[in-house]
């Protein structure tokens, strides 16, 4: 039974990395298509659109952080695997869900917003600051989810 606990905990780390990473991949992909469209007509806008394309990439990093914290919590990184009960394993899995799910949704949404913001750069490159704010707003919710996942995983006693 104790082995099942570690499986649940590991699933938590996997969910955080997999879902948040997938969200970022989708988001960066969408924004990248828009960025390519603009650069193919006007290569001088490369730097500005690249920054906007990278904005949805943060969710993947947040997932990675929670994954790391989880792995070190259960001792998988240090070499000494701790004994994790099923209940604790499930708690860790639940703690990882916020960044996983919110990462997936916010990453995709931020990608779409970034693609629209790239449209602003295409027409009014001097409005870069304003264009960056719109996709940055979506980031708030990924950060909130990261905070809760981080606090929850850290608070669980193993």
């Amino acid at each position: 039974m104790s082995q099942l606990g570690i499986v649940y905990a590991l699933m938590g780390a996997a969910v955080a990395v997999f879902l948040a990473g997938a969200g970022s991949a989708l988001g960066v992909g969408i924004a990248g298509q828009a960025a390519s469209g603009v650069v193919s007509e006007d290569p001088s806008k490369f730097a500005k659109v690249l920054i906007l394309q990278l904005l949805p990439g943060t969710q993947g990093l947040y997932g990675l952080i929670i994954g790391f914290v989880t792995l070190s919590k259960i001792g998988l990184l240090g070499g000494g695997v701790v004994d994790v009960s099923v209940q604790t394993g499930l708690l860790i899995l639940a703690a990882c869900l916020p960044i996983g799910i919110v990462g997936l949704i916010s990453g995709t949404s931020q990608g779409k917003t970034a693609a629209s913001a790239i449209g602003i750069i295409a027409k009014k490159p001097d409005q870069f600051g304003k264009a960056m704010l719109f996709p940055a707003m979506v980031e708030t919710y990924a950060i909130l989810a990261l905070l809760i996942s981080f606090l929850a995983v850290s608070a669980i006693q193993v």
Binding site: I30, S36, G37, V38
Partner: peptide, 17 residues
């Protein structure tokens, strides 16, 4: 709709002309 992301961004750049 998302399949047109590249095309729309390019058209946006073309609209400048």
């Amino acid at each position: 709709d998302l399949d047109y992301t590249y095309a729309v961004a390019r058209v946006r750049a073309l609209e400048n002309s």
